[in-house]
Design a protein around this nucleic acid. Structure first.
Length: 593
RNA sequence: GGUCGUGUAGCUCAACUGGAUAGAGCAGCUGCCUUCUAAGCAGCAGGUUCGGGGUUCGAGUCCCUGCACGAUCACCA
């Protein structure tokens, strides 16, 4: 039963029979009635006055009368100025609820496939707060697309080659004394990150010394021995020097192990990893082929470029004069490789910060010029930076918020606040630990996802662990609360999953059934708009409205059995919808808290 | 300077793609736990939607213009 569709059809019939005009399908739209008026759906008459040739008020009345007479779903109407507000009968809402409980919350599989890339770290340092927004966004979008009926391939491209990892390698040679993550008990990514910092320190020291002994700043920067060593290491790597290559493999392996721990803590996993060390060569081949075909051009020094001035962009370098690849070259290769790995995907999404908007605009344009039909299916999910109250995160100033640390802090904060509220009674320690984890991560994820991706986030540590108001734990709490109620109903042996004869609902009950029915649309919309924040907003509104019901009516102890059962069923469906909505954000729903 | 994005309550964010009196949370104030979990609910207060023009029955939303903030325009990634 699609109430909205049914009403729209009847409105079209109404125009036909009352005014003799045919309104094309899809032109008529309904909107939710504002709270202060009676009704659920509102039809705005103004745009159609040229057909009705009557006042807005009168047009509404004619259509309203027609609807009540010709559509059994519509029980009543009122018109305010040109707004026709339609009420749906309570029997319909009651049936609608039963129908919802019997319908799957996800869309059926439509056979299409999508690829979503997210995270995509460098291998020289641990993940930080910025990655968290990226990862939560990418994961949530994957879940949303999946719930919308698509098969989703979650991937990341790992920037495992380049000067950055060479720096860590050189520093390890000098200062490592053969120590390893195992021997030190450190997480692999942290271990490597430390050597990256050690490199930088030593480098600065050497530069300072050179300047002191008379070098210019520029010369010093270039000729510092440790930097030269790093560059030599990179060259050795590119020529597959066995010793360097082995060391590179080992050290990257440490980093991946560390990342795995972090991803597991986040509740995130990937279907396939791409490594730049494996894709840059394909990119280079394609560029050389494009050069031959005249899509690109070569300068006197041998460097290869693409001219995008006709498209309103600049000229862009694709291969350096020494023939080595740049970032763009690798990304061309990666994209092509993905489509050959997964020929059935009908689109891919790159979850990458907005500082790279220009890069992706250029990338997609180049792929298009190379003749790849699927170039127009590529989408850059661009998001704003996460800034701290003190300003931007800067590794040099040590203001980078580490992902592991932050997750732990947020879990600790949840534990502390739970204890303060005196809610730790019934749980054993394992259950309690798990609850704190669910709450802490729920708070953090919701905090980062509720904002429109395009907007930058001012990260407020205190707010991110808040459990009250517009937060993840508030929504989780509503879910836990409902489950407590349903457990009691079960204990009493109440079977509420029946078609109850209810003919008198409160405003909030009608509103909740309406909202529950909107869930699937919201899933689709959030996926199409690449915006988990829409789902975050939806579950929050739902939880908020349910609490209104909870606080204002009696449910389990209601004497009218039909009413009681309807409310229990409504509670059941709300809990189910909240849990699914939260899971689409990557957030777990505790059974009790 | 060019391009893209953002600008809404003291603060953090919404606003169903042009609809009715712009909504939530936090912070502040007032009430409500011997009825199912008060991590809650009810209420008060808080707005020139950055400024200025325009389009129309109607503009936070669309167009023009100015301002502020951010990103970007590398033989970096």
């Amino acid at each position: 039963m699609n109430i909205e569709f049914s009403i729209i059809e009847t409105i079209r019939d109404g125009f036909e029979s009352e005014f003799g005009v045919t309104i094309p399908e899809g032109e008529i739209q309904l909107q939710p009635t504002r709270k202060e008026f009676e009704g659920t759906y509102t039809f705005v008459c103004f745009p159609y006055l040229r057909f009705t040739r009557k006042s807005p008020e009168e047009s509404g009345k004619i259509l309203g009368t027609f609807l009540v007479e010709n559509n059994s779903l519509v029980s009543n109407f009122n018109t305010v100025k040109g707004f026709l507000n339609l009420s749906i009968s309570d029997e319909v809402w009651s049936k609608r609820l039963v129908e919802l409980t019997q319908t799957h919350l996800d869309w059926p599989e439509d056979g299409s496939e999508m690829m979503v890339e997210f995270s995509s770290p460098n291998t020289n340092k641990p993940l930080h707060l910025g990655h968290l927004r990226n990862i939560f966004l990418g994961w949530s979008l994957s879940e949303l697309l999946n719930a919308a009926g698509k098969k989703v391939h979650r991937v990341q491209i790992i920037n495992d080659r380049g000067i950055h990892i060479c720096k860590s390698m050189v520093a390890w040679d000098h200062f490592g004394n053969g120590e390893t993550p195992e021997s030190t008990g450190m997480k692999g990514d942290k271990f490597i990150g430390d050597y990256y910092v050690k490199f930088d320190k030593e480098y600065k020291k050497q530069v300072a010394k050179l300047i002191e002994s008379g070098s210019s700043e520029e010369d010093a920067a270039k000729s510092a021995p440790i930097m030269k060593e790093a560059q030599e290491t990179l060259l050795k790597w590119e020529s597959k020097d066995p010793e360097v290559y082995e060391k590179w493999k080992t050290m990257n392996g440490w980093v991946y192990k560390g990342f795995d721990v972090t991803y597991r803590a986040m509740g995130v996993e990937f279907d396939k990893l791409y490594f730049e060390s494996e894709t840059y060569k394909l990119g280079k081949e394609v560029v050389l082929k494009g050069l031959k075909e005249g899509i690109f051009y070569q300068k006197d020094d041998g460097s290869v470029w693409v001219d995008l001035t006709e498209d309103g962009l600049d000229e862009k370098l694709l291969l350096r004069s020494d023939g080595t690849s740049v970032y763009m070259t690798q990304d061309i290769g990666t994209a092509i490789l993905r489509y050959s790995d997964y020929p059935n995907i009908s689109g891919q999404v790159y979850t990458v910060g907005n500082e790279q908007e220009y890069h992706f605009k250029v990338l997609f344009l180049i792929l298009d010029k190379l003749g790849y039909e699927w170039a127009k299916e590529c989408h850059h999910l661009s998001y704003g930076m996460v800034d701290l109250p003190s300003g931007k995160m800067k590794s040099r100033e040590g203001t980078v918020v580490d992902a592991d640390d932050l997750m732990q802090e947020v879990i600790d904060a949840a534990a502390k606040q739970t204890a303060e509220l005196g809610k730790v009674d019934e749980l054993d320690s394992d259950e309690a630990e798990n609850l704190y984890r669910q709450l802490g991560l729920g708070a953090l994820k919701y905090y980062l996802l509720r904002v429109d991706p395009r907007k930058r986030i001012l990260f407020n540590p205190a707010e991110s662990v808040d459990l009250q108001g517009n937060t993840g734990p508030f929504i989780q709490y509503t879910h836990a609360r409902i489950n407590s109620l349903l457990r009691k109903a079960d204990q009493l042996g109440i079977d509420y999953a029946v078609d109850n004869d209810v003919n008198e609902l409160t405003e909030i009950e009608r509103d909740l059934v309406y909202q529950l029915g909107e869930f699937k649309n919201k899933v689709k919309e959030a996926g199409e708009e690449y915006s988990p924040s829409l789902m975050a907003q939806f579950v929050y509104d739902l939880a908020k409205d349910y609490n209104k019901l909870w606080q204002n009516v009696i449910i389990l102890k209601e004497e009218d059995i039909n009413k009681r059962n309807f409310r229990l069923l409504l509670s059941f469906q709300t809990a189910k919808t909240i849990a699914r909505g939260l899971s689409l954000l990557g957030i777990e729903s505790p059974q009790r808290m």
